[in-house]
Amino acid sequence: MSALRDLQQDFMTAVFSAKKAALARHLVGTASERAWRIDIYRNNAVSNLSSALESAYPVIVKLVGAEFFRYAAQEYISRYPSVSGDLHVFGEAFGAFLAPFPPAAQLPYLPDVARLEWLCHKAYFAADHAPFALDRLKQVAPEHYGRLQFRLNPACALFESAFPVDRIWQVNQDHHTGDQALDLSSGAATVVVKREMYRVAVNALPRSEWCGLHALSTGHTFATACDVALQIDPDLDPGAALRRWVEEAILVDFSISA
């Protein structure tokens, strides 16, 4: 092993596992001086990674408070090291981490709120895609309607939860001024994450529409999506729903399957 590699590995150990002895032998200064100098790097690394988590999970910070969040972040950082130089992708597993995290057991909705926030975080940086004009659909011959396939906006995501995560998310936004009431027993939510004018929004959809969109987003044809949606709500007007999805730029392109 090269001396450089040896040193760098000792540094990583000192930063992430608090075992400073191996690094300290490479450093000048008294024992106490070397210890506090190493701590500067420990604090920097933990604080940079915690800040990245905080900016991706602002609702979780509000729900659990800054102190609890810092503790959870430290645990997460020690278990899920950052494997990419790109700090935007750090924190993806935070929802999965919170699910079995004993200190968070009293807040069973927390993992799903975190998963929703990650989708919002990704939507913020997702590729731009122009909406398409409804007129383009009018040029499709009616016999092809059933074989239409649609493309979900890259800056949209669909999410479902057993908890009212859309309301939890909305009332915890900084700019939220409306009703603060939140009924945690109000049940499941089916939501769409959207980016509107570079601001991310979370909106509830009727379950029928959500399941239809979900079918489309996973590559199924419009015929299949209609079947799925109408099974849940026989009164749904699929044509009107499709128009809304296109107008709201949830769907941004289409093709006709072979």
Binding site: L4, Q9, F11, H26, A45, S82, V83, G85
Partner: peptide, 22 residues
Amino acid sequence: CWTGVDSTNLHDLMPLPYTEEA
């Protein structure tokens, strides 16, 4: 500087030893 090793990132700017090897 260096910012990580063994595919783990510190997201901090770490100093190098000023050696001929480095």
